[in-house]
Design a protein around this nucleic acid. Structure first.
Lengths: 344, 344
DNA sequence: CTGAAAGCGCTTACAG
DNA sequence: CTGAAAGCGCTTACAG
């Protein structure tokens, strides 16, 4: 049997101070002599002391944990988002609890009930537009709430301009000669929420093509679920419509990866015969030399955490809206763009 | 501003009883007169009272929440598993907190530190074999731990016999005439853990074919990531090797779905020209008429929860091992098996 | 069966 | 700057 965890009492005794003092160093209270603080810190270290969040919360303070409610889809996007959130929270000694939303019913339970999710110090909601889920468009909680990867005028929101990203993609690909194709990622219909990012990206893309006077026949668009294999099928489909060089915009790096894989498998030179532009800027894109419209996911997560921290510290002004812009990153998969843009 | 949540005090006052009595009905203590219990329950209802898990935990009792640590992959499998776990936990008034494991580092943090994950009443670990992650193969926690979808002699384990499932699949498909093919799902290499279920399924499958005297050339195996599009690519590949009728075993229903989709797209009759057998028994398999090797995921989750509950109530015997068997479900995608098994 | 008291591990004014 | 006390919302013996 493991020994019981040491409490603040043991720390106080060992450091030869009162409970209050220990608590003060725990909470970074300025009114502690550096010398005393050091002594307490050492005692904690020696005892392997670690504060009990339940007790902290019960004592009227904070639990020092933040809940992140996110869709039950474990993708690279959410991994990066969580990383960003965590990076700033950790610095402030906050912990993270993830609550994957499996259904709308579960979301309600998280929020209306006594679940732990409800009892942390603040909430970050990822990718949800809440207005449709609750009456009055307001979440049934009085903790601070921040939205990320979606927005709502009632809450601090951090989001990416996906339309702009698609537009940048379209403008860029229009510089090249050759037919233009696009792979759109299908939204999952059975989710408790509607995700519109893929549609927004495509809308921006089509708008840009129109502005550049580049035609885009309907059958140049291929729709698939989010998977590399979807990209492979897409390329095969495109090659039935048109011969190289092909310019392909994939609405997600995952899919773009499949396009590249299939091109290689067919012996086509990526960057020349098949130019591929992805969207996301996931780490693996760099590894495989994929040009992409990068979204600063980690930065968005960090920003969301920062806004939440401010709210938890009492900031009470009206909701803020932070818009991030995606960035074109040129790599080998699109080759070298012509000095003079192609004119149809 | 929302009113403060009512506490046990308000409930006691309203019901005209002492604090202890309220606590007793909260904890289902038998020593409460039915009449009194009813009165307390009504007071709770009227006040919208809901107990504070932090306080419960701090008071030396339970927090009435259980942590589930699971890989950061949101698939139908884990949705079902959680559903199963939750079904029995809910009944005992326990809540669930999910902790997706993003990396081994995070797993350690969950377990070694003061995170909430560590401070609930018990842990369920899904799909992990822990021995490789901690010294001595023992988790650094003294809470009860139950494993599911994996096993370890040191802990109560609930698992599926994947080899048997593959074997059943092989024996079944061998009854049909026509070439036999298989789609294997690739294990994700960048996970913090090694998942071997797909390999086990395939091993059982191959073993059965051998026993039935059915040849299985190496190029009848197609490997892909887990996606329906992978199944579509697989079928196209198989059709280059052999003409219908084809018998395809897909290591996962997701992939089998893609095989069906592609067959239909190519105008091939599923169940005759292309026979497909999946693995998982996910709900959507029934909708599309997919024959499959069903694993009782919900039942496995429920069993794990039950074992954990027993441990939390003090059950202290050596670790138990519960093995579940998959079940063949025949539907339209494999058509009608011949009265007399095919003999090569 | 039920109430009053002690205590869980912490924080936060309140006095020094 | 620091200690002692009160209190957070609950549970658990302890007496009746």
């Amino acid at each position: 049997m493991r020994k019981k965890k040491p409490t603040i009492h043991e720390v106080a005794a060992r450091a030869g101070v009162g409970l209050g003092t220990v608590s003060r160093v725990l909470n970074n209270h300025p009114a502690v002599r550096p010398e005393t603080r050091a002594r307490v810190l050492r005692a904690m270290e020696e005892l392997g002391y670690t504060p009990n969040p339940h007790a902290r919360r019960i004592a009227g303070g904070r639990s020092y944990t933040v809940s992140v409610l996110l869709p039950f889809v474990a993708t690279e996007f959410y991994r990066r988002l969580i990383e960003g959130i965590e990076s700033v929270l950790l610095e402030k000694r906050y912990d993270l609890a993830l609550f994957p939303i499996l259904s709308e019913a579960r979301l309600r339970r998280y929020l209306e009930s006594h679940t732990l999710a409800y009892l942390t110090d603040g909430l970050i909601l990822a990718s949800y537009d809440l207005t449709e889920h609750f009456e009055g468009g307001k979440l049934p909680t009085d903790r601070p709430v921040v939205l990320v990867d979606t927005k709502n005028p009632r809450y601090d929101s951090v989001y990416l301009d996906n339309f702009l990203g698609g537009h940048v993609a379209g403008t860029y690909l229009a510089r090249f000669p050759g037919a233009i194709f696009a792979v759109k990622v299908e939204e999952e219909p059975d989710r408790a929420f509607r995700h519109t990012v893929f549609a927004e990206r495509m809308a921006g893309f089509l708008q840009a093509l129109k502005e550049q006077g580049r035609p885009f026949p309907e059958d140049h668009l291929y729709t698939t679920r989010l998977s590399p294999e979807g990209g492979r099928l897409a390329l095969r489909h495109f090659l039935e419509k048109s011969s190289p060089p092909l310019n392909v915009f994939a609405g997600a790096d995952q899919v773009a990866l499949g396009v590249m894989e299939e091109a290689e498998r067919l012996g086509l030179t990526v960057g020349q015969e098949v130019r591929v532009l992805g969207f996301d800027g996931h780490p693996f894109a760099e590894e495989v030399g994929l040009s992409t419209i990068a979204q600063p996911v980690e930065a968005m997560g960090a920003k969301a955490a920062q806004l939440l921290l401010e709210r938890m510290q009492g900031y009470a002004a009206p909701p803020r809206e932070v818009r991030f812009e995606p960035l074109l990153i040129e790599r080998a998969s699109t080759g070298t763009p012509p000095a003079v843009p192609y004119v149809p």
